[in-house]
Write a protein that binds this DNA or RNA. Structure first.
Lengths: 242, 242
DNA sequence: CGACAACTTGACGGGCGTCAACCGGAGTGG
DNA sequence: CCACTCCGGTTGACGCCCGTCAAGTTGTCG
């Protein structure tokens, strides 16, 4: 349980540095957290509903998603996660996870013992602020997703997902604002937007036909950001990224 | 700015007492918070998207809802709130609200200065834990709502809303598990479930026809809790109320 | 008793789900 | 190196759930 890779926590550190005013001692102590890094294949579960764990995962590389399921077998993805995201801080305070977290691509995860993280939070209030703020931003994104699946038509939902993903990728330093890779399948996009894979495909095609985006494989390029944002009804305020 | 009514904070105190192990000093200091109580009519906005405030509201009596809107005028309610709920802790850490909070019925609100609350959080880590956990439970409910509007049909969505509301009312000491009052209009239920008022009406009628509930006015009685939960696909774990 | 909001019910249409077939690329094994 | 497999993507036909529109009805507050 030592720092195998010096910069494994880099993404997370940059993120919490944006979330609160941290001093050198804050950074030093965060960097001193013990952790172990693991590489996991696409599809692997990182958190499982109902199963408590004593480590908390930081996503070092790759993409993951949270999802819940209905008794009838429907799956709803409630968020996507990327480099620097903390996968389950809520599990510091809520013992039993109420949802799953699953690797979308191959991922590298830094596992930190919860006890150490809890101790750090008690010692460094600014870090607690940053982590709390992070969970509040997650909640804000959930609210926007409720709006997205509840009140927008299929075309807008897809456009909104694209806008959000592009914005978050850019903040995380992955790809530019107008060109990025969608790591998930269309089926996953469907499960995130409350649609079916077939209809997601139709809508992506339509957005391309309208000249808003181009696609080749999973590479997406936003041709007309302004019109796409308008179609998506996208206002990045809810990301609280400023 | 004094304690006009000795038990105005009672609901909130009971709530945070459930959320973390608090000692006498924690309770004493929470009760010592300065606040002012205001009565506001149904429809009044308590928090407005984009408008910062320097007080944080605790709901003393009545019901409120959070909502967001699309550019095309659609409204999505993302949560309902009742006695004891803290309306906007996230605004302690996120300067600008990304949604509205509006009174559903006439409400009494205890307004606490943010600065005092922030100070209390710094001084009493257990209270910080309780409030953080409260926001995490809110987030968990948002996730369940994403699932509800994204992956369940209209009948299940309505049934789920009823189950959740009944469970929360009971915890808050309002009505019993099988008999309670729905304070919101069917239009609001529609805005919470991503449906239309007309269709909400049809589904409520259907649930009644099936013998799962009875209604008279806004009084709802759950006749067959087990079958209703089954229709709703309701598992209260996400409420983290144990 | 009049006004207004909320609730109720029916008729009709459309957006999206379902089903089904086919394509294309990546991995695998002979 | 090629055949096979499999998963994901693509496209079309058809149907249903739920939205829309419209016309009452009920209830409440003045």
């Amino acid at each position: 349980m030592t720092a195998i890779s010096g910069d494994a926590l880099e993404g997370a550190i940059r993120k919490i540095g944006r979330l609160a005013r941290l001093d050198d001692e804050d950074f030093r102590m965060f960097e001193a957290l013990p952790f172990r890094v693991a590489s996991l294949p696409a599809g692997r579960y990182l958190v499982r509903e109902g199963v408590a764990a004593d480590e908390c995962g930081l996503l070092v590389q790759g993409f993951a998603c949270r999802h819940k399921t209905t008794a009838s077998g429907g799956r709803q993805i409630v968020s996507f996660h990327m480099r620097g995201d903390i996968l389950d801080i809520q599990l510091l305070l809520l013992a039993v996870p109420d949802h799953n977290v699953q690797a979308v691509t191959e991922v590298r995860v830094a596992w930190v013992p919860k006890a150490q993280l809890r101790q750090l939070i008690r010692q460094r209030p600014s870090i607690a602020d940053a982590l709390w703020r992070d969970t509040l931003i997650d909640a804000s994104i959930f609210r926007e997703w409720v709006l997205n699946v509840g009140r927008r038509d299929a075309r807008s939902r897809i456009a909104h997902l694209l806008c959000e993903f592009a914005a978050r990728c850019e903040v995380a330093g992955l790809g530019s604002a107008d060109r990025f890779e969608l790591p998930m399948t269309q089926e996953m996009i469907a499960d995130a937007t409350g649609l079916t894979g077939v209809h997601v495909n139709r809508m992506l095609r339509q957005l391309a036909d309208e000249g808003l985006i181009t696609r080749s494989g999973r590479q997406v390029r936003i041709i007309d950001p302004e019109r796409l944002r308008e179609v998506a009804d996208f206002d990045p305020a809810y990301l609280h990224a400023a």
